[in-house]
Design a protein around this nucleic acid. Structure first.
Lengths: 212, 212
DNA sequence: TAGATTGTTAATCGATTAACAATC
DNA sequence: TAGATTGTTAATCGATTAACAATC
């Protein structure tokens, strides 16, 4: 029953979720693999293969119920279970993420931020308390956050990641331009590397010029 | 001579670049595919295959010269050509990117930001002037920026992307939680979707629990 | 020359697509 | 029942890995 789910499929799950949410908002109650695929730029075959990694969500001759499918995918992604996160590095990027990113709709409660800046410590950013960096260890031991968000300068990324792992963190969301995933492979790491993304864009627009 | 370069290879190029930069800083002058692969979590074969998409950068019996390889990859990614960018939406996320992200080291000059907030218009963020949203069209016609950075509310993403395309933008760097790449396929779009990344992490830590 | 390591071809592996029987 | 569409198996395609001759 339990098929091994490939990385490619997992990366598509959030997109399915987003598109299904959109459909639900539009009042659509059922969708065929063909229509969903078309909307997302995938083949109907691929959509069905993807869903069947987790079991039969559809009904022959009818399609997939939007609500049920959305809930199933949400459960697979564990969006229904509330998890907690701490953010390390409450500077520009860190505070932007606190202010902008909706942790709650993604199943996370951001319980604290940490920084070395004395001017920030003791304040709140969008309701999230900013604590002193040297209280991070004790805080994690006490509150056992599930995920650590790294938005600090790259120089401190490794040691902080190590500290978090040491305190039993379950995952790291890494905004640092450093490949953490290689050294710490006991704990899953997801990277958000702005520069890599822009470089790919740079390559792709360059390519385009040649064609003109 | 011109092999088709796969998406997978292109996505690895920025990582090669970063790792080679690191090596150069450490004073390393040559590296074998085996050692580079080990450092990056790839096989030696894959490293050689990747580089040979673009031509023979190495020397048999010796390896790859770090400097030369770095420069070649930089040129492939067009990091050596200076391009220009405008940012649309100078709120929290937008200003964080302006303040934090080093456009210059990625071959871009951020020449202006645009917003509807009268309080921001006329100010500067890290030396980047913030202009009124309704001047965007004229500005683009005059200055012909290469890339548009979308950090505005998702509701306005589509119309703004359309406007930019209309003014001859060559690429879009999209921070909006919307799949732009499907509708506008004349212009390359690179997406930075925070939520998707966190959902994948959520899935992966969930998975881990079962094993314990 | 001997050792090392590339460039490149062939083999393998995995993911996507196509096809179709099952069934709502 | 007839039409539609899934679930699933088989075929294809592409990417990764292995192997090895070329050569520095």
């Amino acid at each position: 029953m339990e098929k091994k789910v490939s990385q490619a499929v997992i990366k598509r799950l959030p997109r399915y979720h987003t598109h299904l949410q959109e459909l639900r908002e539009l009042g659509v109650t059922k969708i065929s693999s063909r229509d969903l695929g078309e909307k997302m730029g995938l083949t109907a075959s691929q959509v069905r293969q993807d869903f069947n990694c987790f079991g039969g969500f559809g009904q022959q001759g009818y399609g997939y119920p939007v609500d049920g499918l959305l809930e199933s995918i949400g459960r697979i992604l564990r969006l229904d279970e509330m998890k907690t996160a701490v953010l390390v590095g409450a500077g520009n990027l860190g505070s932007a993420i606190i202010n902008n990113f909706n942790f709650l709709t993604n199943g996370f409660r951001l319980i604290a931020a940490f920084d070395v800046d004395a001017g920030l410590i003791g304040t709140e950013i969008s309701g999230v308390p900013v604590c002193a960096m040297d209280t991070l260890r004790d805080f994690c031991r006490e509150h056992r956050p599930d995920v650590g968000v790294l938005t600090l300068p790259r120089e401190y990324a490794h040691e902080t990641a190590a500290l978090l792992c040491d305190c039993g963190i379950r995952g790291i969301w890494n905004f640092t331009n450093i490949d953490l995933h290689l050294e710490i492979d006991t704990v899953p790491v997801e990277n958000v590397h702005f520069a890599e993304s822009l470089m790919v864009l740079s390559y792709r627009i360059g390519d385009r010029t040649k064609r003109d």
